[in-house]
Amino acid sequence: MATPVLDKAEAEAQAKAAALITVTFRVRRFNPEVSAESVWQDFQLQIDPKERVLDGLHKIKWDLDGTLTFRRSCAHGICGSDAMRINGKNRLACKTLIKDINPAKPITIEPIKGMTVLKDLVVDMEPFFQAYRDVMPFLITKDTNEPTRERLQSAEDRERFDDTTKCILCAACTSSCPVFWNDGQYFGPAAIVNAHRFIFDSRDEAGEQRLEVLNDKDGVWRCRTTFNCTDACPRGIEVTKAIQEVKRALITRRL
C-alpha cells in the first residue's frame, strides 16, 4: 500500500521541480544607515512561473537575504500594503504572476515613486494618508441624533458610487501620477476617489464641504487626465473618470 503513495509523492515532487524556472529579481535597495544612494541588486531564484512576485520576494527574504525590506500584510490583494513598481509599472506584488511579466528578462522591482523611501521598498506613506484624511473619508450627516435604524438607500443610489468603494488605499494610483511626483502637494487620485465615494453617496450630507476641499490649488484641477492612475489601479477602478465626475460636480454646483 505504501509504495504507490510514495510513487505519487515522488512524481509530484518531480513535476514541481520540472515546472521551476530561473528568474532574476532586480531589486532597488536603499538603506539610509549604509549609504545615501540606492542601488540595484540582482537575485537569482528558482520559482514556479505560476507563483506571484510576492512569493519571489518571500524566497529572497527568507532564504537569500533577510535584510530585504518590503510591506505586505494579507498577501491576497485586499490590504493594499505591497504596491510597488514592477517592471516600471505600479502593481500589487501579491496579484502579479511571474509568467505575466516576462520572466526571461530580469524583473525590476522598485519602491513606488513620489514618496520618500525609508528602506528598500518601504516608503513614507504619510503624505498619501494626509491627503486621504483631508477629504474627510467618513459619513457626515446634519442629523446629530444617533440613528435608530439603518440608513436606507436605493440600489440605484448605491450604484452611483459603487466603483469608488473598491479602493484599498494601496497608493498605486497616486504614486503613478506625474503631477504628484513633482512636489507631492497634489491631493492625488486616491484621495479624490475616496472623496467621490462620499460626495455621490445619497446618505452623506457633506458633499459640498468635500468639493470645497478639492477646489484647492492642489485639488482636482491639477489632474491632467494622463490616465496613469486608471492603468495602475489593481482593483480596476476607473479613477480618471471619478476625478472628472468630481470636476463636473464642482462646475455644475459653482456656476
Partner: peptide, 8 residues
C-alpha cells in the same frame, strides 16, 4: 488657504 475658484 489655497482654496478658491481660480483654478476652476
Amino acid at each position: 488657504s489655497t482654496r478658491g475658484n481660480f483654478e476652476m
